[in-house]
Design a protein around this nucleic acid. Structure first.
Length: 314
DNA sequence: CTCCAGGGATGAT
DNA sequence: ATCATCCATGGA
C-alpha cells in the first residue's frame, strides 16, 4: 500500500526550516531537499515547496491511521498563526522577532521524548543537544526504515530505565545522566504519569514536572510549551533573559528570576510561549558570533550516521 | 587556550 | 526567599 505512505499537505503560513531549527526539537536532519526525522515512532521525510508539504513515510501505517492527519497535527498546522502573531505586544523587540519568524510554529511533540531531551539540555548548546539526542536514539532507539537508509525513534522511558548511568554517560550526557535515568525510572514504574497529567491545570502540571529529577522551572516550561500545548508557558533561558533585560528592563537594576517570570507572564499575552519562541529564535539567529544570520543549524553531516559512537571505556 | 551553553540541586545567607 | 557553587562536556 503505497497510498498512505505518501501525502501532500496544504500548509500556508508555515516555514518548515524555521520550525525545525528554532531550538524546540533537536532530531530533524537535513536530507536531500527536506528533512528526515520521526513523529513518535514513524519515520518521516518532509519537504516544503511553497505552501505544499510533501511527505514520505518509511513504514506502513495501520489502517486506522492517516499520514496527513498525523503530520498536520505534529506541525500544528491548525494553530491560527496570524491571530497569534497579532496578539503579541507591539514593541521594538517583538516587532523584529515577529517579522523574522514568519511561519514558525510550535509543534506538538511526544511528551516523554520532549521532556527527556530537555532534561539533557541544561547548560548545553543546541548543537550538542542535537548530538545527545542522536546518541540516545542510535544506541537505545528502534531502527525505522527510511528508503535506502534508516533512522531511530526516541527510546521509551522503559527502555532507558533498564540502562545504567554509565551507559547513558557514554552518550555525552555528563552529570545529566543520573537525572535522566532517575526520571525514566519514575515514568517507567508508573510513579510519574506523564500522559495522565495532560488534564491538569497549568500550575498543577508544572509542580508535578518540577518534582522530577533534573526538571526545574525552565525544563518544565519547555515540556509544557512544546509537548503539553500550554501556550502561555514561558521558558526563560540565558538567551531570553538577555532579551528581557535589554529590551524591557533597560537601566533598571538586575531583575530577579521571579520578577522576569512575572513580567513575562503578564506582558506577552495569551500566546506568551509563542512570543518567547520568536524572541529566542530571533536573538539566537542574529546574535550568534562568527557567522552572520545564516541558515540556522548548518548540518555538516552528510549521511544519517549510526556508528559514530565509540564504545570507549568509562 | 578561554569562554559559554535553552539549568538544577544543594547549602549558606 | 534570594545567592553561590558545583556539576560534565564540547562548540566556537
Amino acid at each position: 500500500m503505497q497510498a498512505n505512505r505518501l501525502a501532500e499537505i496544504f500548509a500556508p503560513d508555515f516555514d518548515l526550516e524555521k520550525t525545525l531549527n528554532s531550538g524546540q526539537v533537536f532530531h530533524w536532519e537535513k536530507y536531500q531537499a527536506g528533512f528526515a526525522g520521526t513523529i513518535a515512532s514513524l519515520s518521516i521525510l518532509v519537504e516544503q515547496s511553497g505552501e505544499i508539504l510533501k511527505i514520505r513515510c518509511g513504514q506502513r501505517l495501520g489502517v486506522a491511521k492517516n499520514l496527513s492527519t498525523i503530520v498536520a497535527h505534529y506541525f500544528a498546522l491548525d494553530h491560527p498563526l496570524a491571530k497569534i502573531c497579532a496578539s503579541f505586544p507591539n514593541d521594538a523587540a517583538m516587532d523584529g522577532a515577529r517579522a523574522f519568524c514568519c511561519g514558525l510554529r510550535l509543534i506538538r511533540q511526544p511528551v516523554w521524548e520532549c521532556l527527556a531531551t530537555f532534561i539533557c539540555s541544561s547548560m548545553k548548546q543546541v548543537a550538542h543537544i542535537r548530538q545527545i539526542s542522536l546518541n540516545l536514539r542510535c544506541r537505545f532507539g528502534r531502527a525505522r526504515p527510511l528508503f535506502t537508509t534508516h533512522i531511530y525513534d526516541f527510546p521509551s522511558a522503559r527502555r532507558l530505565a533498564q540502562e545504567t548511568e554509565v551507559a547513558l554517560r557514554q552518550c555525552g550526557l555528563g552529570y545529566r545522566a543520573k537525572n535522566l535515568l532517575a526520571t525514566a525510572r519514575l515514568v517507567a514504574d508508573g510513579d510519574a504519569k506523564l500522559e495522565a497529567w495532560r488534564c491538569l491545570p497549568d500550575e498543577e502540571l508544572r509542580s508535578h514536572l518540577c518534582a522530577l529529577p533534573g526538571v526545574g522551572p525552565k525544563v518544565a516550561n519547555c515540556a509544557m510549551l512544546f509537548a503539553y500545548e500550554r501556550i502561555t508557558a514561558f521558558p526563560i533561558d540565558v538567551w531570553i533573559e538577555r532579551v528581557l533585560r535589554q529590551s524591557y528592563f533597560q537601566g533598571k537594576k538586575r531583575p530577579t528570576a521571579t520578577a522576569l517570570a512575572r513580567f513575562a507572564g503578564e506582558y506577552f499575552g495569551p500566546h506568551g510561549g509563542y512570543a518567547q519562541q520568536y524572541l529566542f529564535h530571533h536573538a539566537r539567529s542574529t546574535n550568534r558570533r562568527g557567522k552572520k544570520a545564516n541558515l540556522g543549524e548548518t548540518n555538516r553531516r552528510r549521511s544519517l550516521p549510526q556508528d559514530d559512537m565509540r564504545a570507549g571505556a568509562q
